[in-house]
Design a protein around this nucleic acid. Structure first.
Length: 200
DNA sequence: GCTCCGATTATCT
DNA sequence: GATAATCGGAGCG
C-alpha cells in the first residue's frame, strides 16, 4: 500500500476519529517539518463553529472536496490558518492545525517567525504554525500527498490524548473537540471567547 | 504566568 | 457594516 493511500484511508474517517490520530503526525513543507501537538475538529454542516455550517461559499469550497487537501483561510485581517480536510467527499469536515513542535528546519522557521523569542513559540498557535511553515493563500486546496507540502501520519496512535473546549469560539464549551498531547510545551494556552473583548 | 488592547481586511449578512 | 477558528506588545505579579 502506498503512503498516499495510507493517508487517505486515515483521513476519510469521521472527523472525531481523525483529529486525535493527527497528533504526532508530521507536516512538512520543504525543509521545515512540524510535529503536531494540538488540533481541533470541525464537523461541517452539523457544527455551528464550522465555516461550512451555512453551506458552501467560495471560501470554504475546499472543505467540501476530498480528504487530504489543505483548507487555508485568512482571518483577523492578517493571519492564515490551516485545516486538513477529512471525511468523504461532500462532507465538509476538517481538522484545524492549532500547534506543533518544529522538528526540522529550525533556521528557516526562526527567520520566518522573528517575533518568536524561543523555539517553543515557533508554531504554538494556528497562525504561527502557518507562518513557520510558509502556508498561505497559495497553499489553499493543496493535496497533502504531493511534495513539497506533505502530511506524514504517525505510525501509531498517540499514547495519551487530552481534550477540551475549542479556542476562540462563541459557545465553545458545548463541544470539547480540541485535542492535544499532554506535557507538550508547544500546546497553546486556552483563551475562552467569553473573555475576549468581543462583547463591548 | 496573567490581563488588556490595537492591528487590519476578506468574507458574509 | 460587523465580524473574525489570532497575535504581539505593554504592563503587572
Amino acid at each position: 500500500m502506498t503512503r498516499s493511500a495510507d493517508l487517505r484511508s486515515l483521513l476519510e474517517r469521521p472527523v472525531l476519529e481523525v483529529a486525535p490520530r493527527l497528533l504526532g503526525a508530521v507536516l512538512r513543507h520543504g525543509d521545515v517539518a512540524c510535529r503536531l501537538t494540538e488540533v481541533e475538529a470541525y464537523d461541517g454542516a452539523h457544527d455551528p463553529g464550522s465555516h461550512a455550517y451555512r453551506g458552501p461559499t467560495p471560501r470554504n469550497a475546499v472543505m467540501f472536496g476530498p480528504a487530504g487537501h489543505l483548507y487555508v483561510y485568512f482571518t483577523y485581517g492578517m493571519h492564515w490558518c490551516a485545516n486538513v480536510v477529512c471525511g468523504v467527499e461532500g462532507v465538509a469536515s476538517a481538522v484545524l492545525l492549532r500547534a506543533g513542535e518544529i522538528v526540522e528546519g529550525h533556521e528557516t522557521a526562526r527567520a520566518r517567525r522573528t517575533a518568536a523569542r524561543t523555539d517553543r513559540d515557533l508554531a504554538r498557535g494556528p497562525a504561527r504554525l502557518c507562518q513557520a511553515l510558509a502556508i498561505g493563500r497559495d497553499q489553499n486546496g493543496h493535496d497533502l500527498t504531493s511534495a513539497p507540502l506533505t502530511l506524514e501520519p504517525a505510525s501509531a496512535p498517540p499514547r495519551a490524548v487530552r481534550t477540551g473546549p475549542r479556542v476562540g469560539l462563541r459557545d465553545a464549551a458545548d463541544r470539547p473537540w480540541r485535542f492535544y498531547l499532554p506535557d507538550e510545551p508547544t500546546v497553546s494556552t486556552y483563551r475562552p471567547a467569553s473573555r475576549l473583548r468581543s462583547r463591548s
